Computed example of a mutant assay.
Amino acid sequence: MPKSKRNNIVTLSKTKKKGREHKEQVVNGIRQALDEYSSVYVFSFENMRNSKFKEFREKLKSSSRLFLGSNNVMKVALGRSHSDEAKPGIHKLSKILGGHSGLFFTNLATSDVRRLFDEYEELDFARTGTAATEKVELMEGPLEQFTHEMEPFLRKQGIPVRLNKGVIELVSDFVVCKEGEPLSPESARILRLLGMKMASFRLHLLCRWSPDEFEVYKQDLDLSSDIDSS
């Protein structure tokens, strides 16, 4: 008789220890950075793309350091109030950390930092659920941008197509997406096939702390944009 898997005992001690150690590393890293860099910024992001963020981080590694992760862990590192703050006045950053945000430590001049963040934008293919930025419609007729082998795949995406002498033909006009409406999985795949990028990965500065100054740049940003693991 096969052994029941319900009775298997799984220990979580190693997982818990690993999680605790990681949190301690983040806290220690942030507190070390407080001594190494002259300014700290809180930033938010939309349409996160990990590969693009790593490139941004690599570009600035000689002068700066960025932290992403649990807001609560970062708040512990900074301090939540006057009584436990790591540096005088830095607990104010904890009050702004929220949603999808991070910390940027740097020795760069404030003007250079604001220019870097204001100018940074990376376009990418939108994921399911992202609001379409424009209406996309395919018109009846041949779809010569696709090879005949793709006809079954296009049909599975709900596109009314047929093969006509080896050429994929759209039987009737087809709306891929409408502006402002969330993309379905099929719409997202079709837009990728069409090479249309509707997602904009952006970083926004919210505030800055230095030993002699605290500035708030934006307080009304929506920090609820989904994190993407690409």
Rank of each mutant, 00 (worst) to 15 (best):
P2D: 12
K3Q: 12
S4A: 12
K5Y: 09
R6Q: 11
N7C: 11
N7G: 12
N7A: 14
V10A: 14
T11K: 15
K14S: 13
K14D: 10
K14Q: 10
T15L: 09
T15N: 07
K16C: 01
K18Q: 06
K23D: 00
V27A: 02
N28M: 01
I30D: 03
R31N: 05
Q32A: 13
Q32V: 04
A33V: 07
L34F: 10
L34K: 04
E36Q: 14
S38E: 12
S39Q: 15
V40F: 02
V40C: 10
Y41H: 05
F43K: 03
S44K: 00
E46F: 02
R49I: 12
S51P: 03
S51Y: 06
F53N: 14
E55A: 09
E58I: 07
E58T: 11
K59H: 13
K61P: 04
S62Y: 13
S64A: 15
S64L: 06
R65E: 14
L66A: 13
F67W: 06
G69R: 04
N71D: 01
N71K: 00
N72A: 10
A77N: 07
A77W: 00
L78N: 06
H82E: 08
S83P: 02
D84N: 09
E85M: 00
G89P: 08
I90A: 01
H91Y: 09
H91M: 00
H91V: 01
S94M: 02
S94P: 00
L97V: 02
G98D: 00
G99K: 04
G99I: 02
S101P: 03
S101T: 05
T106A: 07
D112A: 15
D112L: 14
D112G: 02
R114D: 09
R115Y: 09
R115N: 04
L116K: 06
E119H: 11
E121H: 13
E121F: 08
E121L: 13
E122V: 11
E122T: 09
D124N: 11
A126R: 04
A126L: 07
G129D: 08
A131L: 15
T133Q: 07
E134V: 06
M139A: 13
F146M: 10
E149Y: 12
M150C: 01
M150D: 00
E151Q: 15
P152C: 01
F153Q: 03
F153C: 06
L154V: 15
L154K: 14
R155C: 07
R155H: 11
K156P: 00
Q157L: 14
Q157I: 07
G158F: 09
V161Y: 04
L163M: 08
N164S: 10
N164W: 03
I168A: 04
V176I: 14
C177K: 14
C177V: 12
K178L: 10
E186L: 05
E186K: 10
A188V: 09
A188K: 12
R189C: 13
R192P: 02
R192C: 10
L193P: 01
G195F: 04
K197R: 13
M198C: 08
A199C: 09
L203V: 13
H204W: 13
F214V: 01
E215G: 05
E215K: 15
E215W: 06
V216R: 05
V216Y: 01
K218E: 11
K218I: 05
D220V: 01
L223F: 01
D228S: 11
D228Y: 12
